[in-house]
Simulated scan of single mutants.
Amino acid sequence: MAVAADQQTVDGGEAEAGAEPEVAEKTADPARFASVFRRFVRGTVGDDVYREPRWSRLALGAVLPSVTGVLWPLGLLLAAAAVYRIRKVGQRGSVLAWLCLAMAVIWLGGGTPVLGPWFGSEAVGPQGRAIVDLKVGDCLSGLLSDVQVKVGEAQVVPCTLPHQGEVYARPSLGDAVYGTDTDLSEEAGKACPPLLSDYAMDSWAIPESVTLDAIYPGHGLSTAIRHSTAICIVEGDRAGWKGTLRRDAGNLTADQLTYLRAARAADDAWAAEPERKPEDHPDIARRWAGVLATGLETETKALAQAGWPGAVGPAVTALSAELAQAVTHLRAAEHAADDATMLAELRLGVAHAGNQQAKAARAALGLATEPGRPLPTGI
């Protein structure tokens, strides 16, 4: 009888009175429908609006180019797009996108190696940079050949690595009309050499093998009417050196600066020494004796006016005493009545120039103690 009743219910589609249906019918939820519709309008993608948001592929793709600096413009675009997209559709990776964007901006601003603290600054090799974008203090890998100048690019490396050149000045050549390429080159050659002493205040710290070079943006153009800026470069041999040649207020102590400023006048006088032999050109030698005497007097006065700490004081006092003797002989040479007396006094003045005393003072101050043998600065 039970089987027949069940069959009747199935065939006739009628259930017994008072019996509940086996499966309850699902009812529509208006609140859930409204939530789905709002999220659809806001742009949520995907079929299942309730599952956990996916990571932004744009943010993930920006990591490598932004962190390493390889194709950093691509990293900048991907990171910016990721920030916009994440805010729009609610994906994961907002912090990552912002970090990648910040790293790409760092590369845009000049290329500080983001991975330096982990891999060390020496892991960074030469980086090509347009010659017009070279800055004072840039260290250059390789000698700046005519080929590089015409291409317009130089290889810049950290100064802690071996390098063969440094940019020491960017003087303005002013607004002018230059008829040939040689005109600009000559103007740059005149403007650059006097500026080396501002970049490398310690002349003893400049290697003997270096030479001075000067180029300018637009090198290779036959005619130019523009405001031009020269690029002054000190170059060495292919062996190069480590550490910057820069010696100024940025990496010298107050006492070192005082000493080097005091010696500036004497250094300039020594640099003006005639190439011709004194006995062959006594008049030129006589004039130079006066120039050197003035330079040493200026140095002596400046050294006496400063207060020197510790062991520096006695060394500077000994130097000043020796320079005073030199000045006496040099003035005698300047005003000598005959050439023989002039030559004898000039030799005595040079002999009392205080080379050994200067080495002692420099050693006490922590400066280079041999001309042409700079102490490494680690910069």
Results as ranks from 00 to 15, higher is better:
Glu279Cys: 01
Arg51Ala: 04
Glu52Phe: 09
Leu196Ile: 12
Leu348Gln: 15
Ala17Leu: 12
Glu275His: 02
Pro126Val: 06
Ala169Asp: 13
Ala353Pro: 02
Val132Asp: 09
Lys135His: 04
Ala28Arg: 12
Glu25Thr: 14
Pro371His: 06
Leu144Cys: 05
Gly165Ala: 15
Asp248Ile: 00
Phe33Leu: 13
Thr244Phe: 11
Val151Arg: 10
Ile284Met: 01
Ser141His: 12
Gly250Phe: 02
Thr180Gly: 06
Gly116Asn: 09
Thr341Gln: 13
Ala176Gly: 05
Ala293Arg: 06
Tyr199Ile: 14
Pro207Lys: 09
Lys359Val: 10
Ser66His: 09
Thr369Phe: 11
Lys301Val: 15
Asp181Met: 10
Ala239Phe: 05
Ile233Phe: 01
Arg32Gly: 05
Ala311Thr: 03
Gly125Pro: 09
Ala269Tyr: 01
Leu143His: 10
Met342Ala: 08
Leu101Lys: 02
Ala4Asn: 13
Asp283His: 09
Gly189Ile: 04
Gly243Tyr: 05
Val89Arg: 11
Thr223Leu: 15
Glu14Pro: 00
Ala15Cys: 07
Val327Tyr: 10
Leu60Asn: 01
Val350Ala: 13
Gly120Val: 11
Leu58Cys: 04
Lys26Phe: 10
Ile131Thr: 09
Val327Glu: 15
Ala321Leu: 14
Arg54Cys: 00
Ala311Tyr: 00
Val177Thr: 03
Arg170Ala: 10
Leu257Gln: 11
Glu25Pro: 05
Leu303Ile: 10
Ala332Ile: 05
Leu108Val: 02
Pro53Arg: 03
Leu296Arg: 09
Leu101Asp: 02
Ser35Ile: 12
Thr44Val: 05
Ala169Asn: 12
Ala306Phe: 00
Val36Cys: 12
Leu348Asn: 09
Ala24Ser: 14
Asp255Arg: 03
Glu370Pro: 00
Gly354Cys: 14
Ser94Asp: 06
Gly349Val: 10
Gly137Asn: 03
Tyr199Asp: 05
Ala154Tyr: 05
Ala205Ile: 04
Ala19Glu: 14
Ala364Pro: 05
Thr160Asn: 08
Asp338Arg: 06
Pro158Ser: 07
Ala304Asn: 13
Ala214Tyr: 09
Arg42Leu: 09
Asp283Thr: 14
Ala154Pro: 07
Pro126Met: 07
Pro53Trp: 01
Gln325Ile: 07
Arg362Gly: 07
Val49Ser: 07
Tyr50Asp: 14
Lys277Ala: 15
Ala17Glu: 14
Val350Ser: 06
Ala230Trp: 01
Thr258Val: 15
Leu221Asn: 15
Arg246Ile: 01
Ala102Arg: 00
Asp146Trp: 08
Gln356Gly: 02
Ile206Met: 07
Val147Trp: 02
Met1Val: 05
Met201Lys: 13
Ala24Lys: 13
Gly290Asn: 11
Ala315Cys: 03
Thr377Gln: 15
Arg51Leu: 04
Cys232Leu: 05
Asp138Tyr: 01
Arg38Thr: 10
Val312Thr: 04
